[in-house]
Structures are given as C-alpha cells and as structure tokens.
Design a protein around this nucleic acid. Structure first.
Lengths: 213, 213
DNA sequence: GTCTTTCTCGAACGAACGTTCGAGAGTTTC
DNA sequence: GAAACTCTCGAACGTTCGTTCGAGAAAGAC
C-alpha cells in the first residue's frame, strides 16, 4: 500500500479556479439568475465536467460561502491573537472585515447578498460559522462596554448597526474615489466608539455641558 | 366623443394587488429565482392574464421599486415640510425610512436587494429617483455639518455609513425582539450625531481631556 | 338589439435550465 | 504490458422558464 499521500494533485487548484469564476458570476447576476452554463463558459470547464467538482448548484454556492467565511474568521483570529485592548480589538475586527471585503469583492458580495439563497442541508452549517463570527464581534463589544458606558443601547442593536455599516460597503465603494480599507476602518471605528459608547442613545446631545465651543 | 373620463375602473386596485403579491415573492425567493407562474398562483390571476398589467418581468420589478421609492420620498417630503432644525430633520429622515421599512418589508427588501437586477431601460429612471433621495440626505448632513464639526470625515462616507445602518435592518430585524421604528430611529440618530459630528474620525478618543471618569 | 372597448385565460412557443450518463482520454500502480 | 484509478466531455433527459396568441366573456355606449 502506497504510503497515505494521495492528495488530489492540482484538482484543488482547479476547484478554486472554478469557485473564483462562479463567485464572479453569482456576484454580478445573482445566484438565482446565474446558470451553470455561464460558469462553464467563463471558467473554460465543460458543463458536465463541472459536476465532477461539485454535485449541485446549491453545493457550489455553499462552497463559495463557506470558504470565504472560513478565510475571514481565520485571518481575524490570527490578528486578534495576543491583543487584549478592547478598542484595538475592535479596530482590528473592522479592519479585517473591510480588507477582506475589498480584496475579494465578488466572494463578499455573494456572502452578503445570497444569504437566503442557500437551502436546508447547507443552511445550518453556514449558520454555525456565522454565529461564531457574530459572537466574536459581540464579545468585543461587551468587553468595550464593561464600564457600562452604553447601557442605554441594546448591545444587539449596536453590533448590528456596525455590521450594517460594514456590509453595506459593497453597494457603494468605488476604489477610485473612496478611502481604502485601513482609512475606512478607522472612520467606522471612530463612528462606533463615539456614537455608541460616549454618546447617549437619544437624538439630542444638547445638555451635558461638556461641549467645547 | 364621450368627455375625457375613461379612467381604468378598479384596474388600478388589481394592479396593486398583483404588485403586492409579486413583491412578496421577489422578496422571499429573489427576483432571478422567482417565476411569473408563482406570481400567478399566489395572486390568483392567470399566467397570461398578468401580462395585461405589465409587459415583462423587468417592468414588473420596475413598477414595484418605483412605487416604493416614490411613496417613501413623498412621505418624507411631507414630514420635512416646515421643519428647519437640522437635527430634527435628520431624525425625521431616519424615522421615515425605518417606518416605511417596517410597514412594507417586502417592498423594501426588493428595493435594497434587487438594485442590480433591474436592466437598462428602467435602470436610469430609478437612478434619478434614488439620486434625489440620496441628495436629500446629503443636504441634511451638510446643514448639520455647517459648523464644520466633522471636517475630518468625508461627507460621502458618513452618509453612506448611515444608509448602511438603515438598509441593513431588513436582514436582522425581528419585531418580537427588536425595538420598533421610532426607538430604532432615535438610536441610529444618536449614533450618527455623536459618532460623526462630535467624535474624531480616528479610533482613539484618548487625549482630549473631556473624559468623564 | 349591435358595436366597441376592456379584461381574462387555456394552450402553446422556443429557449434555457440543472442534472445525468456512458464513453473515453491520461495518469498511476503493479 | 494490463488493471485501476482520476479526470473530461458531448449528447441528451425532463422540466421550467418568459412570453405570445386568439378566442371569448363582461361591461358600457349607442
């Protein structure tokens, strides 16, 4: 028996090639309106040849989403390693998110946009990865919030507002006009820190007397 | 010749009926994956009968989006009428947006989610309505910002972060758990005012000496 | 009554869809 | 060499798609 190093040769690389093209097409047409034939045309792999690499269109979508999410999480965990200061952790979290966004726009769009398109065998698996990611952000917020400065605002709402800011970026970001990931991350961290932690939850900053004229 | 009052009887009402069902289906399946047959089934109008009311699936999507946008804009302009205080105008803007969101979740999801699905004859028309809406928000921000308190942050980025917070809501809002439109609007207004206007754009509030311990 | 306009729908169109199948290349193992 | 894998693809499957067409009901005008 030949050791135990079969390893799928460069099959892995070809899968990634297919996944990349599929992500681009899903991102531009939407999952429902994309056809496997289009992916075949774009990737150069024959229609039936694709099915050697994934068993259904749903599974293809799952692979894209799952790969992207796993990458983000890994890179985030690596960055956070050893960093204890909550504010710095928040900045790193936002930076990681936005950087991945801008380096893999197609994958991120599929991730944000085709959340509902995934169906039940795969839905659950993705949900658990997502939950891990959400929980991590929520944990950072709770540490930040330990001094109780933002008791007026539901932590859930605060964190989801942050996700909204970050995840909406793919709808408007134009590399020629808008700031890069690093600067954008600082801006959003700033908005979040001052808006959620220092401010009151109410609309009027009016009274507190701390205004510098 | 009989006066000039043909008027499409209750045809208008039936169109709205169809639009409502179509919006629900587009919202739950996505535009690309929804079929006219599904809309026929759900609305009770025969497949071919639908084509008396719209000439193509694209036009149907356009009608939904255009109606929703026009409604929002109208209701917003009515609310803002006579209100001059910029902070109050911001609150009204956010309130209007979120209220419409929660009263017409399907339409709003179609609006947010199927932006790219609309094709070229109709794209332009929608773009001009959207631009008007965006410009209005931008105007409110510029007034708010007249004192120059947020010079460090690109107004474009600030406003788009606000849109992100608001438009992401359809992904997470659960009426059983989360605050209603009014409270949410106050929270977001608060985050925006304190985060963007008072705070610095940088991540660390550290130095300014105005910290209350 | 008839004529006209407004509305409805069953049946069908060609095209495109996701997926399968079996034959056959290419490479590796003995 | 043969046998056993790994990979590729043309052709076809049954289904569903968006849209059209022509016949006819319903309602209003004269």
């Amino acid at each position: 028996m030949p050791d135990r190093a079969p390893i799928p040769r460069d099959t892995e690389a070809k899968l990634e090639h297919i996944l990349r093209h599929a992500a681009n097409i899903f991102a531009s047409r939407g999952f429902g309106a994309s056809s496997i034939r289009e992916i075949s045309r774009s990737s150069g792999v024959s229609l039936s040849g694709l099915y050697y690499y994934f068993e259904s269109k749903q599974k293809l979508l799952y692979l894209i989403q799952s790969n992207a999410f796993t990458s983000i999480l890994q890179s985030l965990e690596a960055r956070l390693e050893g960093v204890r200061d909550p504010q710095r952790r928040l900045l790193l979290f936002i930076q990681n998110h936005l950087e991945y966004f801008m380096e893999h726009p197609a994958e991120m769009k599929v991730l944000s946009h085709e959340e509902d398109a995934i169906e039940e065998p795969f839905r659950k698996e993705l949900l658990s990865i997502k939950r891990r990611y959400y929980t991590l952000a929520r944990g950072i917020f709770d540490e930040l919030n330990r001094d109780g400065r933002a008791a007026h605002l539901s932590p859930r709402v605060a964190v989801l507002c942050l996700y909204g800011m970050m995840n909406w970026v793919y709808k408007w970001h134009n590399p020629k006009v808008d700031p890069g990931a690093a600067e954008l991350a600082e801006s959003m961290t700033g908005i979040f820190l001052h808006g959620v932690l220092n401010g009151s939850g109410r609309a009027r900053p009016a009274a507190p007397g701390g205004n510098k004229p």
